[in-house]
Structures are given as C-alpha cells and as structure tokens.
Amino acid sequence: MSTATLAEIDVRSIPPYQRHQQIFAQVDALQVGQSLRIVNDHDPVPLRHQLESRSPGQLQWSYVQAGPQLWRVQISKVQGVADADQGSCCSGGACGG
C-alpha cells in the first residue's frame, strides 16, 4: 500500500510537554493511506508504544532515518477504527455481554 505523507513535524522545536499531544492530534486526523513524518534527536520508542496502545492495528511505524544524531519516523494509517474492530470477538456484541 502506498501512502501520501501529509506533513513532517520537527519535534525538536516543540516544548517537550506539548510534543505527544501535537503528534496525537495529527495522527488522529490521518485518513487511511495517509502518513505523518516526525523528526527527533532520539529514538521515539515511548511515542511508538503510546500510539500502538491508543490505536492498535491502525498504524504502521517505519524508520526513514535511524540515528545516531537524527531520527525520522513515518507513521502511516493503514486501517480505520471500524476495520480494526472487525477482528474483535466482541464486534457486533458477540461476547455475551
């Protein structure tokens, strides 16, 4: 699947306490097939874990550049919320709840 990169965010210029909030807002606005690229001075592993827990199965994480001074990561939306729920045993209320 090919994706269109909408923007590149250099998070080094954003105050640390605002970084994830701004990235989450832009990632949440992505449509399937779109991506966002972030630039950072360290490997943003905590961000990856947070995104995976917020949007399981919806995003693809790809290193475009992996250090040692600069990291560029492309975050692509590969499926929507409804698509991700299709594999759930509880979709359609089938969990007996």
Rank of each mutant, 00 (worst) to 15 (best):
F24A: 13
A4T: 12
L47M: 11
L59T: 01
L36Q: 03
G80F: 00
Y63N: 07
Q58G: 06
I9M: 10
P56Y: 04
G87T: 11
H42R: 15
D83C: 02
S35R: 01
T5E: 05
V39R: 15
D41M: 05
S76E: 12
G96H: 06
D10I: 09
Q50F: 13
Q79D: 03
A94K: 12
R12T: 09
I75K: 00
C90E: 15
Q22G: 02
P56V: 08
V81F: 13
A82V: 04
Q58N: 07
V78E: 00
L36P: 00
H42Q: 07
L47Y: 13
Q60F: 07
R37W: 04
I38V: 07
Q50I: 12
W61M: 06
W71P: 00
Q69G: 13
H49W: 13
S88W: 09
H20V: 05
A7P: 00
G33N: 02
C89G: 10
V27G: 01
L51M: 02
V64A: 10
R19Q: 15
G87Q: 11
A82C: 03
R19E: 09
Q60R: 10
I23F: 00
A66G: 11
R12Y: 02
E8Y: 03
V11Q: 04
Q58H: 06
S91H: 08
R37S: 11
E8G: 01
D10R: 08
R48F: 12
G67F: 00
V27M: 08
L47R: 03
L59R: 00
I9V: 12
G67L: 07
S2T: 13
T3F: 09
S62P: 03
D28P: 09
N40F: 03
V39A: 15
Q31A: 14
S88C: 09
Q65D: 12
S53V: 10
Y63W: 14
Q50Y: 15
S76Y: 01
H42G: 02
D10F: 03
